[in-house]
């Protein structure tokens, strides 16, 4: 197990050493979203009848940060290692593909949780926020972070160049997270977009995560949990399959 532990430790140390860029910067970005959107919309919108817009927005921003940073951690680490060639240091030792997967996903979850917690601490002062059920909060944060961390491995291995990874991030991750109900309840959308949102797995992560705070949500948290869990397992299997075959890493 020690190879896994070291790889996990190295991955955490890697982002922690440049925490200004990997933790502080995304926290600041989320804070800016909150200041701007809540300034514009606070007096116009109430969600679930009683929840103020700012209070509604905070969990969304927290979860969006968790997801984006989990993805960024594994994908940028892998692409950097591949481009600079130091990926060889991980490929030469007796580390199994399962250990490899677990270390990168777990480090991605840690980065996501650290940033998410940072966003929560930075934004909680702007609206009264209570946690209805911390188990939901934790379950969706960990599962969502794990899923995006896994997707980050896929993207980091698939991309040969930084711009390919940027395309993956800009054309897939950004639309999926922005159109997932971070900034609005999907009940406020026209029917077509409401239907479409139901095909976005990120919607369920945000909705379930929010349920942990308010005890109400667009869909049942159990449904969200099932869908997120199923996506996590499917994506995990795909990633493990790629790693086992050595796709682009051992060829």
């Amino acid at each position: 197990m020690s190879g896994f532990r070291t790889l996990f430790y190295k991955e955490v140390l890697r982002f922690w050493k440049v925490a200004t860029q990997t933790v502080a910067a995304p926290v600041l970005t989320a804070l800016l979203y909150l200041l701007i959107f809540s300034h514009v919309l606070e007096s116009h919108i109430r969600v679930y009848g009683t929840v103020s817009y700012t209070a509604f927005l905070i969990p969304g921003l927290v979860m969006m940060s968790v997801l984006q940073n989990a993805f960024a951690n594994s994908s940028s680490s892998l692409i950097q290692s591949k481009v600079t060639g130091n990926i060889i240091f991980v490929l030469l030792p007796p580390i199994s593909y399962r250990e490899f997967y677990a270390a990168y996903v777990l480090a991605a979850v840690v980065r996501g949780l650290v940033v998410g917690f940072g966003v929560l601490v930075a934004t909680i002062w702007f609206a009264p926020l209570e946690v209805d059920n911390p188990l939901w909060v934790l379950a969706f944060a960990v599962l969502g972070g794990g899923m995006l961390g896994s997707l980050g491995i896929v993207a980091g291995i698939w991309a040969d160049k930084f711009d390919q990874l940027a395309a993956f991030q800009n054309f897939l991750i950004m639309p999926l997270t922005f159109l997932s109900g971070v900034f609005y309840s999907i009940h406020s959308l026209p029917p077509f977009w409401q239907q479409l949102s139901h095909f976005n797995p990120v919607f369920y992560m945000i909705d379930g995560f929010r349920h942990g705070f308010f005890g109400v949500s667009d869909v049942s948290p159990w449904l969200s949990l099932s869908i997120v869990g199923a996506c996590f397992v499917l994506l995990g299997m795909l990633t493990l399959f790629m790693l086992e075959r050595g796709y682009k890493l051992r060829n």
Partner: peptide, 10 residues
């Protein structure tokens, strides 16, 4: 140290 750890050596 990290390289040692990859080989299970602490």
């Amino acid at each position: 140290r990290i390289q040692s750890g990859y080989f299970g050596i602490r």
